[in-house]
Simulated scan of single mutants.
Amino acid sequence: MSQTFRHPEILEIARREGKVTVEGLAAHFGVTLQTIRRDLTDLAEAGRLERVHGGAVLPSGTTNIGYEERRNLSADAKAAIARACAARVPNGISVFLNIGTSTEAVARELLQHEDLMVVTNNVNVATLLVANPDCTLILTGGQLRRADGGLVGALAAETIRQFKFDLAVIGCSALDRDGDMLDFDIQEVSVSQAILRQSRKTFLVADHVKFSRTAPARIASLADIDTLFTDRPLPPDLSRACREWQTEVIVASPVDTARLV
């Protein structure tokens, strides 16, 4: 198979898994390690991937990837995370769901919940939950971001400050090794920070790809989160930090039931 045919598949694997390794790709394509290293170098020089030790990851930067592409990225993992998260959401409470494909997945899992009040700045979440007649829906105001149906800005944050939520379920664009939650849009960051301040309990839903990405704006630390739902175990240092912060970590594999780490 020529590199012309390998490159698109390498990119697809990277989008699906968040990272590719030289050894894994060599075994997948039945070529030498040197051939894969050349492929990854070519893709890195073209700005399609970012080289790391032993492989490559999706490139970091100051802008996010497209929303439809994010919807398809780690779709099975997001569904498993959403099921585990929704199982911990009781009936009869107020919940905030913010912008993102992971929170959309949680919304799908809340369609059978009863007596919920859901406040959201995510038009897609509201559209999904219209199908639940036992759910009261409130959309924040704000500037509509057409790319993903998000409502951002001062008006969204002001609406949020009028509430005290029993629970917030939020997502983020990236998680770094220090346990900081990161995003690309400073307006969205200010809204997320308002959500954290106005919530009695906070769940973060973030698949493993978020640990191989970066973004320029800091939202908060995992120390400020009650429970993280993800699909793979955390790096040992971050796992220890979460225990010190008393941040619960739930790993929900697409093929296994959720387990406490």
Rank of each mutant, 00 (worst) to 15 (best):
M1C: 08
Q3G: 10
H7W: 11
H7A: 14
A14K: 03
A14I: 03
G18F: 03
V20E: 03
E23K: 09
A26Y: 00
V31K: 00
T32Q: 03
T32H: 11
L40I: 07
L40V: 02
A44V: 08
A44I: 07
A44E: 14
E45L: 10
E50I: 00
E50N: 07
H53R: 15
H53Q: 14
G54T: 11
V57W: 01
V57C: 13
L58C: 10
G61C: 09
T62F: 07
T63G: 10
I65Y: 08
G66E: 12
Y67W: 12
Y67Q: 09
R70Q: 12
N72A: 14
N72Q: 14
A79E: 11
I81Q: 01
A82V: 12
A84N: 08
C85K: 08
A87K: 08
V89D: 12
G92S: 12
F96G: 01
N98S: 15
I99H: 02
T101R: 05
S102I: 06
T103A: 08
T103L: 03
E109P: 04
E109I: 07
Q112M: 10
Q112W: 08
H113G: 02
D115W: 11
N122W: 02
V123R: 10
V125P: 00
A126E: 03
L128Y: 00
L129K: 06
V130H: 11
D134H: 15
C135G: 09
T136G: 09
L139W: 06
Q143I: 10
L144I: 13
R145G: 07
R145E: 12
R145N: 13
R146C: 08
A147F: 11
A147W: 09
D148M: 00
D148V: 08
D148K: 05
G149P: 08
L151R: 09
L151E: 06
V152C: 05
A154T: 13
I160K: 05
I160V: 15
Q162G: 14
D166I: 09
D166C: 06
A168I: 01
A168V: 04
V169Q: 06
C172E: 09
C172D: 07
A174F: 02
L175P: 00
D176G: 11
R177C: 13
D178E: 15
G179R: 03
L182M: 15
D185C: 06
E188G: 14
V189Y: 04
S190D: 13
V191R: 00
S192W: 00
Q193R: 15
Q198F: 01
Q198P: 07
T202E: 07
L204F: 05
L204V: 15
D207V: 10
H208T: 13
V209G: 02
K210D: 07
S212Q: 11
R213G: 06
R213D: 00
T214W: 00
R218I: 14
A220C: 13
S221H: 09
L222R: 11
I225C: 06
D226W: 08
T227L: 00
L228T: 05
P235K: 06
D237V: 12
L238I: 04
L238H: 01
C242A: 10
R243D: 08
E244R: 14
W245Y: 09
T247A: 01
E248G: 04
I250P: 01
A252M: 06
A252N: 02
S253N: 13
S253I: 02
D256P: 01
A258H: 07
